[in-house]
Design a binder for these strands. Sequence first.
RNA 1: GGAGGAGUGGCAGAGCGGUUGAAUGCACUGGUCUUGAAAACCAGCAUAGGCGAGAGUCUAUCGGGGGUUCGAAUCCCUCCUCCUCCGCCA
Length: 425
Amino acid sequence: MLQVNFIRDNKEQVIAGMQTRNYKGAQLAVDKVLMLDDQRKSTQTELDTILAANNKISKEIGGLYKQGKRDEAEGLKAQVESQKGRVKELEEEMRQVKVKLRDALLEIPNVPHPNVPPGNTDEDNEVFQDWSKDLPEMGADAQPHWELGKKYNLFDFELGVKITGAGFPLFRGRGARLQRGLINFFLDAAHKAGYEEFMPPLLVNEDSARATGQLPDKEGQMYHATKDNLYLIPTAEVPVTNICRDVILNEKDFPIKMTGHTPCFRREAGSYGKEVKGLNRVHQFEKVEIVQVVHPEKSYEVLQEMVKYVEGLLQQLKLPYRILTLCGGDLGFTSALTYDFEVYSAAQKRWLEVSSISNFETYQSNRLKVRFKGSDKKTHLAHTLNGSALALPRIIAALLENNQTAEGIKIPKAIQSYVGMEIIS
RNA sequence: GGAGGAGUGGCAGAGCGGUUGAAUGCACUGGUCUUGAAAACCAGCAUAGGCGAGAGUCUAUCGGGGGUUCGAAUCCCUCCUCCUCCGCCA
């Protein structure tokens, strides 16, 4: 979430940003935050005044007892005692106003970067780099990946249903090896690019889920192990970013580059139809995530670097891709600027999103409390960024569909040594 | 899962009801000294929030939450984490 003081100092900018996102009632939401903050301040001022007086008297009582002046001490005791009711009231008021303020702040989205194009839906996203000119033509007999998976026995949705339910694919044989090879390929690439590799826990506690913003906003998106009150991670972003929670860094620690492969669990409640056919949308999938925590002055430079990095991966895989700048209406609530990567799925004749790279500026770090000591010796919030590099199912879908030939599915050179095959036939 | 012990500043470690936001040591930062460094010496060194132009000042925080008390790091309850022993187990 945004800092109250930032909202106070940049009120017009915050409201304008909310309008870019087609947020209704921006002015009202912002005024509510400021009003609640004023209320918080005045309550604290009153409370602090009483507490200061009480503390002072209590110290005097200590002195009086030492001198044996019991009667005087008793009188002062009564004086403090008389304030207790009011203190309780104010403390309760404080608690309530803080909760209200937090809730109001959660309603305020991040301020979009000036480069964010206006617009309402994914139709309005700006194609910032496009390879659509030489899209592969597969012919009428081209098969979608779910047919190819069946044909070559790479994955089995029916068995996934039997074991768990819809949306839990079972990879087998060469399909499983293809996936494992790709994961290793992505992890090795991240390692070469200077990211530290992590294998984090796949269940997280409430604090972690709250810090990266899954709670309370996206509660329904996560699987919840209620007995232990733990959540299955919807992305490695959650455990990996939480490494830096409540940490005060030194400027020389930047940039912090982290990566990790994890399964991701998403309930995707309400999804159905063609959009979710095959591997297009599933409840459990593999993903390699990259996360950076950087100095605020560097974050947009780093965002470009991350885009270039993901671009490099797709080029090595020889997949036709395009990069989109998300418009105001499609931009994630917590992001200031997001680039989506889509690969072309030749048999389905559609673009599939495989990566989303975002700069959250301080929006995430404010909740995480990731700070650093600047050269001015003060603490400041760091900027956080993350992106998929990459999500597996749709990459696999596109690889299978685009590389199908009469002889079989050709494995791109870059990953042959990882997969241990040149062709799936 | 059962029994016992413990959680204090970046680290180590005192304090166990009264001016203790917290001794001391180490680390760190600045200074003196030195050709430079080390050593020695001097000074500084938590986070968040309120008030204030600022100097500053007040409040909260000694694993988390709650309670007792005029007053809690110190007493009580509860939860969490770590250590030791037993049980179970890939």
